[in-house]
Amino acid sequence: MQLFITGWAKKAFFEVQEYVKLCVALARAATSRPFYYRDVVEQLDAVGVGSLTVVLLTGGFTGAVLALQSGMTLDQFGARSVVGRLISASMIKELGPVLTALMVTGRVGSGIAAELGSMAVTDQLNALRALGTDPVRKLALPRVIAGVVMVPILTVISDFVGIVGAWITTVTQLRVASSVYWNSVVMGLYIQDIWMGLIKPVFLGFALVSIACFVGMRTTGGTQGVGRSTTQAVVAGSVAVLVLDFIITKLLISLLY
């Protein structure tokens, strides 16, 4: 049993060490030439535009259901009219960033792991190196940049759609006047909340994409290995998003408020 635990700890430590190495290589690649512009543009499109539909849907329905639930709770205090406050605060600070990051992990993280994974098992990564290209520079960096840029943008879109979704249920189901809702949305917002809502997704985007690249590039064991890597990227990415969200929230609360 003890042997099992130390073995496991050693393996985990080794994985973390390798992941840190990848992050260092990414930093080095970001600050030196050559830089593959075309791949960055391609990835911005793939990550951003590709995830738009799913982010719109989750944002909208989350906002809508949040309004319904909050309305019920607030009714107990006869405070239905302040539903907007709750919506804007929770959407912008928490649900927007986390749900967007989770959806992007599912959609983009899995795709990256599968793509890089199949390149790894068919020797395409080796072929890149043989032709003088560093796979971290050519494949991982553009994807990570796309994640860091697009996840915050998608988060803002999701926040907005969520608040609109909540507005629709508030007006139609809860029968609260439009102006009351929007007033309360604005009232509930502080500048710190907006900062928090913008800073978080930058880190979440970095984490989820870099983990997907890490898992993908280390794939071994043929097509079966690719499947394993895809699952791993989604599981590890989602857990990392949630854990990191907690850590960053804690940190930002002590820094901003």
């Binding site: 068919t122 020797d123 080796n126 072929a127 890149l128 043989a130």
Partner: peptide, 8 residues
């Protein structure tokens, strides 16, 4: 490379 390893 053994299986070609073309970039697909």
């Amino acid at each position: 490379f053994q299986e070609g390893a073309l970039f697909d």
